[in-house]
Design a protein around this nucleic acid. Structure first.
Lengths: 177, 177
DNA sequence: CGAATGTATATCGAATCGATACACCTCGCG
DNA sequence: CGCGAGGTGTATCGATTCGATATACATTCG
């Protein structure tokens, strides 16, 4: 998981640990802890997927190797299976432009069916909570409704991505500079 | 963390493991794994915070003890410190009705300042990403913007909670039955 | 100058995850 | 009737991740 993300970042350019942490946070989905990060870097190094070299001062610049490239590609290309984590999808998405068009759509569509399932169960919970005789108090009701709305927002966002995917490659219609 | 949530659920009534898992998921913020749940139950049992008794079939019904009650109260009443997790807040919220009014507001206000900080940094990231010469591709931009909007939605939701909090206790205005 | 803050790597123990095993129960269907 | 599929329930394993903390150098600023 984390390994996947690290490899993706290192493809663009070598980075040192701290910078990887920052980049991950900027993508908006993971403020990884040092206790995860540094062991992961050692893991990947031992595996030969990345290589460390001395950088400025205390820094260690990590670069991806050919093996690492291969590993990353296999992770990115792999069919998204049923047990794919939310986070796994987000990582995939962050590097989606590296996939050919038709595979991108597949990734998005697959995600959509998952989110649809989440949405259904969240809605069921809310409906049940509202009708039940033993109503949860307002705080819990608020929690449930908020969870539901978050998923609805996810869904709308995803649909937007899928729609814009269809529009790509047909007529990019770039603004005249 | 998990211990906190388990205690809160057991206050209402005894439950067995599987049921705790289900209840947690229904609150919409945690689908805890068995690998977390059962060790946690043993932990709490050893500590004397809960007590197991035989239930129907394979079930083991867990009930909270006086010690457990005390532990839960201290966790719930504790000042929310700076390092409070998102999840910790959600758990607190799920049991917030057990706190007196003025403390409830404090919990919510405290949360608000945290979310405000998150929002600011998420917005900064998006603004920077849009203006930078090295623009991230559309997928990453979409990720960042989605992250930002999620936090905005969180904020709006929280403000709603705070507002409704002010309206409580003043004039409950209950419907005539 | 010196204190505070930011950058950077590192490690520890504990919490949590994801997968899997196993046993029992119920239900529908051939 | 019997038996297979799917749901219920407890349990454990190894690996991952977290949160806290230590250390140390660099930069900024009163």
């Amino acid at each position: 998981m984390l390994d996947f993300a690290i490899l993706g970042l290192l493809i663009e350019r070598p980075r040192h640990g701290y910078e990887i942490k920052r980049s991950l946070a900027q993508l908006g989905f993971w403020t990884v802890s040092f206790g995860s990060l540094y062991p992961a870097l050692r893991r990947l190094d031992k595996r030969g997927a990345i290589e460390a070299s001395e950088g400025t001062g205390r820094r260690k610049a990590y670069a991806i190797t050919a093996d690492g490239q291969e590993l990353f590609d296999s992770l990115l290309t792999a069919d998204p299976d049923a047990s794919e984590t939310d986070r796994a999808f987000q990582i995939r998405l962050a590097f989606l432009s590296q996939l050919p068009q038709h595979q991108r759509t597949r990734v998005l569509e697959h995600r959509r069916t998952k989110v649809a399932a989440q949405l259904k169960s969240a809605r069921d919970v809310v409906v049940e909570a509202r009708t039940e005789s033993q109503k949860p108090d307002r705080y819990r009701l608020a929690l449930m409704e908020h969870a539901m709305r978050s998923i609805e927002a996810d869904m709308a966002w995803l649909d937007g991505l899928i729609a814009s995917e269809r529009g790509v490659g047909v007529t990019p219609r770039t603004q005249i500079t």
